[in-house]
């Protein structure tokens, strides 16, 4: 019995704690920096791993002296919007490619997947012209419509896998009962595919939340920015980084997504699992 406890410690508890320490350390660092007064920030003789006199001043500055709150709202609107667009497109496309197997679906599937390979760094200049011609400049819609380009390929691939795991017999039964194809999708397949959709949703939401380059180029006015771009604009003043508010922003900017994740992480895993079942 004692030996197995030791084995558990060595093969499970210890490595797990090591991993947690590794993954959490940067967050810990953000936290101690976010509450550290500027005076302590530059003093190497103090304990670097702990903040002696924690202060809320950086959070206060972030929330009341910058545009953080509107940025939070924008980022939310854009992430929700882009995720909605991407998921709607992906669900339809994945279902068509996986279940309908229409003429040309094989080629299209590969094409959608390959579109994931195109690097955004070279897209944004030509893309800027298109955004402008469509009159989307400095509007959330510019990002809501462009983010799906890197969300759809992965989401479609994930959902195709998930649809595959749902027994076709269920749909066939409904078809025999006279349901249209769209009714089958809506009433049979979608409810069953919910975990898979949830996984795709979380994936899409995170990437939209974090995107930098398009947000930098396509949005202009201070109030319409997203969190990653806005923080860099207002809190990096020349060669002085305002570390406290920046780190406070990194923490507060991650909290909404982290909350969503902690509620859904099991569904996310389950959704992926479903997508992988052959």
């Amino acid at each position: 019995m004692r030996r197995s406890a030791l084995t558990t410690a060595l093969t499970f508890t210890l490595p797990l704690w090591a991993f947690l320490a590794l993954l959490l350390f940067p967050f810990y660092w953000m936290l101690v920096t976010a509450v550290r007064p500027n005076k302590e920030l530059y003093n190497l003789s103090l304990n670097q791993l702990w903040t002696m006199h924690p202060t809320w001043q950086h959070f206060q500055k972030l929330l009341f002296a910058t545009h953080f709150r509107p940025w939070l709202g924008n980022t939310m609107v854009i992430a929700v919007g882009a995720t909605t667009v991407a998921l709607s497109c992906s669900v339809l496309a994945a279902y068509a490619l996986q279940r309908l197997r229409f003429r040309g679906s094989g080629v299209l599937g590969v094409a959608i997947f390959l579109s994931y390979l195109v690097p955004p760094v070279i897209l944004f200049i030509p893309l800027a012209r298109i955004i402008n011609e469509l009159g989307l400049w400095d509007r959330p819609a510019a990002l809501i419509l462009t983010y799906p380009t890197f969300l759809i390929p992965f989401a479609t691939w994930l959902l195709m896998g998930y649809f595959r795991s749902i027994p076709a017999e269920l749909e066939d039964c409904a078809r025999i009962d006279g349901a249209t194809r769209l009714q089958v999708l809506r009433h049979i397949t979608l409810p069953l595919a919910l975990p898979g959709i949830l996984s795709a949703l979380i994936f899409s939401f995170t990437l939209s939340w974090n995107e930098y380059l398009y947000a930098l180029v396509f949005l202009s006015s201070t109030e319409s920015k997203t969190i990653p771009v806005g923080l860099a604009t207002e809190l990096i003043t020349g060669d002085v980084f305002q570390w406290g508010p920046l780190m406070a922003g990194a923490l507060l900017g991650s909290v909404p997504v982290a909350l969503i994740y902690s509620f859904f992480v099991e569904h996310y895993v389950a959704g992926l699992t479903g997508a992988l079942k052959e």
């Binding site: 993954l23 940067p26 995170t206 974090n210 990653p228 922003g249 900017g253 982290a258």
Partner: peptide
């Protein structure tokens, strides 16, 4: 978590 924080930050 590491995947959630905006990379820029």
């Amino acid at each position: 978590l590491p995947w959630i924080v905006p990379t820029s930050l």
